[in-house]
Amino acid sequence: MSDTGSDRPTGALLMGRPFGVPVYVTPTWFLITGLITWLFGGQMNAVLPGLGAARYLVALFFALAFYGSVLIHELAHTVVALRYRLPVRRIQLQFFGGVSEIEKEAETAGREFWLAFSGPLLSLALGAVFLGGMQLVEPGTVPGVLLAALMLSNVVVAAFNLLPGLPLDGGRILRALVWKVTGNPMAGTLAAAWAGRLLAVAVLVGMPTVALYQAPQASMTSTLVDAVLGAILGAIIWNGAGGSIRAARLRERLPELLARALARPAVSVAADTPLAEALRQVEAAGAHGLIVVDGHGDPVALVREQAVRTVPLHRRPWTATGAVSRGLEPGLRIPADLAGEDLLDALRSSPAGEYLVQEPDGAVLGILAARDVELAFARAMAGQAPLPAAV
């Protein structure tokens, strides 16, 4: 996928394209990296007091290595998604970890399970690798401390992600299991999303409570930090769970986005027809689109509605219809039976204002306006039935 402005998160830096998938570092990553460096550097002073100020360089190395492990975790999801022919839009490294933006759902519960489990599984494997490395170095040295910290952090990442609630990997595993038992992916989503909301409340209340229990004499600053982190993490999980429900309900409605139902009736005219006359024919026929045809009656271009609006009324009798049209490129021909995500993918691959809708035998059905699809998509997101195109 090209690195367009719409693909790049605001303020993010492109770090590379492993497996053809762009990896971005968001501004919040720098914040959390700095926080990890500061906290781990303070802990290093107690473990290796002889390092002095150099402990912060060691802490920075740990923060970078930790996020390298997070990236490997996300790449595991990406590789499995690509193996199942699921497009991955991008990977983001950000506050509280990373995320792989997979644009389609797995087709079966089994694939959903492996797609979700691959990340924690690889984090556990990394933890085992670092554990093995610990056997080769002295425990009281810088390499020993770093390997121990990376082993523990990867195990924690795996354990946290396996918690059974969306949007965590464990929530997707729970969704896959409920889906497998019930045969209903929506039932799995609802079960895992509500588990995620319960988990969000538990994190919100539990993080500061556990911190106080473990260290009753902790400073007010330390307690406040735990409470703020718990609130942020709880809000992320809660919003992610709600977003999963909305996305699942939207996918249930997507099949209702059918090119045939949204196609506008259109009138065919020659390219040299005056625009005023072409618009008169459209009004007389009760149509809402214009197709430019050649001498054999075959469609060669589509009149752009936006371009028509720019032509003043007094100029329309002297403006040829072909002057406000766009040639029919291959991506502008849409099969009448195209629906749902396939329809949206077709429109994304060839951005335009209008598309020609054709029957399987090549007969012209009408014109599909991008804004009609956008309106129908918005109604589907709101849980409303898509309206047919204007007739």
Score class of each variant (00 low, 15 high):
residue 27 P to N: 11
residue 343 L to I: 03
residue 12 A to V: 07
residue 28 T to I: 03
residue 86 L to R: 01
residue 342 D to F: 08
residue 57 L to S: 11
residue 291 I to V: 15
residue 108 T to F: 04
residue 274 P to Q: 13
residue 297 G to K: 07
residue 320 A to H: 15
residue 9 P to N: 12
residue 133 G to H: 07
residue 130 F to D: 04
residue 261 A to M: 03
residue 335 P to T: 11
residue 239 N to M: 13
residue 32 I to D: 00
residue 361 D to Q: 12
residue 228 V to R: 07
residue 325 S to H: 03
residue 191 A to Y: 01
residue 135 Q to V: 07
residue 222 S to I: 12
residue 379 R to I: 08
residue 25 V to C: 00
residue 386 P to S: 10
residue 157 V to S: 07
residue 152 L to A: 15
residue 72 I to A: 14
residue 58 V to S: 04
residue 286 G to F: 06
residue 15 M to D: 07
residue 118 S to R: 13
residue 246 R to K: 07
residue 110 G to R: 15
residue 42 G to A: 07
residue 382 A to T: 12
residue 240 G to H: 08
residue 277 E to K: 14
residue 359 E to A: 13
residue 288 H to F: 09
residue 119 G to H: 00
residue 256 E to Y: 12
residue 218 A to P: 05
residue 176 A to M: 13
residue 182 T to A: 10
residue 179 W to P: 00
residue 124 L to I: 08
residue 119 G to V: 01
residue 178 V to F: 04
residue 292 V to A: 00
residue 323 A to G: 06
residue 150 L to D: 10
residue 357 V to W: 04
residue 215 A to M: 08
residue 249 R to H: 14
residue 140 G to S: 06
residue 236 I to A: 13
residue 375 L to R: 15
residue 295 G to V: 12
residue 294 D to M: 14
residue 162 L to C: 08
residue 255 P to Y: 11
residue 198 L to F: 15
residue 98 G to E: 04
residue 50 G to R: 12
residue 368 L to H: 02
residue 27 P to Q: 13
residue 188 G to M: 13
residue 305 E to W: 02
residue 327 G to A: 11
residue 163 L to N: 03
residue 256 E to K: 15
residue 6 S to A: 15
residue 146 L to R: 03
residue 210 V to N: 02
residue 186 M to N: 05
residue 246 R to F: 04
residue 110 G to L: 05
residue 309 R to H: 14
residue 117 F to V: 15
residue 240 G to M: 14
residue 103 E to G: 09
residue 383 G to W: 02
residue 205 V to L: 15
residue 377 F to V: 09
residue 46 A to N: 12
residue 49 P to Q: 03
residue 55 R to H: 00
residue 176 A to T: 12
residue 112 E to S: 15
residue 13 L to D: 05
residue 49 P to W: 05
residue 79 V to Q: 12
residue 60 L to F: 14
residue 73 H to M: 06
residue 243 G to Y: 06
